[in-house]
């Protein structure tokens, strides 16, 4: 299997999340950009394609569902992974129904997210 670097975008308005995720995800050689401001993230997304977008669902300005909709409207190849603070059926279902690849509930280990990303990457190759 050929190894290709993934472009990953991480959006969360709490800085601890991006701060700890970035180094963890970069360990496997992928390119990670983190954003606390979802608006800025979406602007960046319009400039540059990302393979995977990881976003928190609850943010003050723009919420995760909006991010999801924006991303899918601009790129049908990008896989969106949602971080939820409270894994309720409704929120998760809404996200999945709107086309999110999967969701992951806080608290989680960087490696848990890594597994989800690998699964998404597998589908990207198909």
């Amino acid at each position: 299997m050929e190894e290709r670097k993934l472009n990953i975008m991480v959006i969360d308005d709490e800085n601890i999340v991006g701060k700890r995720l970035k180094p963890a995800l970069e360990k496997s050689g992928d390119i990670v950009e983190t954003f606390e401001d979802a608006k800025k993230a979406l602007e960046r997304f319009n400039e540059k394609p990302f393979d995977i977008v990881v976003t928190d669902i609850r943010m003050d300005e723009v919420d995760g569902i909006e991010v999801l909709e924006h991303v899918l409207a601009h790129s049908d190849k990008t896989k969106v992974i949602i971080i939820t603070g409270y894994a309720t059926v409704e929120v998760a279902r809404e996200a999945l129904a709107k086309g999110a690849f999967d969701f992951i509930a806080k608290p989680f280990k960087p490696n848990d997210l890594r597994v989800v990303i690998e699964r998404a990457a597998k589908q990207l190759k198909n």
């Binding site: 709490e14 999340v17 700890r20 995720l21 603070g85 806080k106 608290p107 989680f108 280990k109 960087p110």
Partner: peptide, 13 residues
């Protein structure tokens, strides 16, 4: 475990 294993969590947790 969250402390030990470098989990990502927030105050809310």
């Amino acid at each position: 475990e969250k402390l030990r294993e470098e989990y990502i969590f927030d105050r809310h947790y």
